[in-house]
């Protein structure tokens, strides 16, 4: 089992001085993931919070080779780099025993929506890459527009709550399952508050040959509108309410990694967050009910899949 003390002694691949918000979840996620391999790393980063905040010209927070890709093609970029590496190895220009790991990174906007076809293509072609999506449920970098990862009932700038609307009225896209449907060796869902679990999943993703995908919940005080010191607590509530179940799918086999002792009502997850505040209005009670129903359905479905 990894010890935090040992992880802290490792070199920082993402250093201080980046411009991410107070209490942001992204640096915590990558603090763990970037330590899950000791091999040299090449990263392709889709446009998004992480990309913008870590590379404010003329500076960079990256201590590894890092490429900025457009919103839609981080997966294609990293797949191309991986292909080049294989070709150069074949030609003998990279030594046979030299190992390099390839990581594609994007937020939910760059992964669930805009980068979906590039990601689908890259994993379908079977490149030996890891793709990590940090899912903060919105286009947080451009002012909090709704994405397909925004939860049902949440208010976002393009699905605002008000007299005519109770927030987003579409069900959340289940990207993790879409990746499972690609029949790739490893797909997992994780959260930074269970760091051991996230670390192990990242290690597995880097070790496995072929494409691996990690979908990591990323709290966002700016768009979720909660007290910025409570991020880890909120992530804990997300897994206790089964809004964000932790599970992995290895070669098609589902395994749930965290079963709450007592499944809490979705109410506890939405209560501290300003983006759900309108759901407490009487006329919006049905939205909350519907959200709970969706979460229950998904959790039941997942449990069925894990028993197969």
């Amino acid at each position: 089992m990894a010890k935090l003390k040992d992880l802290a002694a490792m070199e920082d691949r993402l250093v201080a001085g980046h411009g991410m918000c107070l209490g942001c979840g992204i640096p915590l996620i990558f603090k763990i993931i970037l330590r899950a391999t000791e091999d040299p790393l090449i990263i392709a980063n889709a446009t998004g919070c992480l990309e913008v905040c870590t590379t404010i010209f003329p500076r960079t927070s990256w201590n590894v080779t890092w490429i900025h890709s457009a919103f839609e093609n981080a997966a294609s970029t990293i797949a191309g780099v991986e292909s080049m590496y294989k070709a150069l190895k074949k030609k003998g220009r990279i030594p046979e025993d030299k190992k390099i790991k390839f990581l594609g990174v994007g937020g939910d906007g760059g992964t669930y929506d805009i980068g979906l076809q590039a990601l689908s293509g890259a994993v379908e072609r079977g490149h030996d890459i890891v793709y990590v999506c940090y899912d903060n449920n919105a286009y947080a970098n451009t002012g909090g527009q709704r994405s397909s990862a925004t939860p049902f009932g949440a208010s976002a700038t393009t699905s605002p709550e008000g007299a005519e609307s109770p927030g987003k009225l579409q069900r959340r896209k289940d990207l993790t399952k879409i990746l499972v449907a690609h029949n790739i060796p490893y797909v997992a869902q994780a959260s930074p508050n269970r760091w051991q679990d996230l670390y192990k999943k990242a290690q597995k993703a880097f070790e496995i040959e072929g494409p691996a995908f990690l979908n990591v919940l990323c709290f966002c005080p700016t768009e979720w509108k909660y007290d910025e010191s409570q991020g880890i607590r909120l992530a804990q509530t997300a897994i206790d309410t089964c809004v964000w179940p932790l599970y992995e799918v290895e070669n098609g086999k589902y395994k749930i990694n965290y079963i709450p002792k007592e499944k809490k009502p979705v109410l506890e997850w939405i209560k501290p967050q300003g983006r759900f505040r309108h759901l407490f209005k009487e006329e919006n009670a049905w939205v909350l009910e519907e959200y709970q129903k969706q979460v229950d359905e998904d959790w039941e479905e997942l449990n069925k899949l894990a028993k197969l």
């Binding site: 920082d12 250093v15 201080a16 001085g17 980046h18 411009g19 107070l22 870590t54 590379t55 404010i56 010209f57 003329p58 500076r59 960079t60 927070s61 990256w62 201590n63 590894v64």
Partner: peptide, 18 residues
Amino acid sequence: GTINLDAGNSVKNLTGTW
């Protein structure tokens, strides 16, 4: 290609000022 060769130079941004 505006490649940044000074890896990790963001440590000069002192975010403590916020």
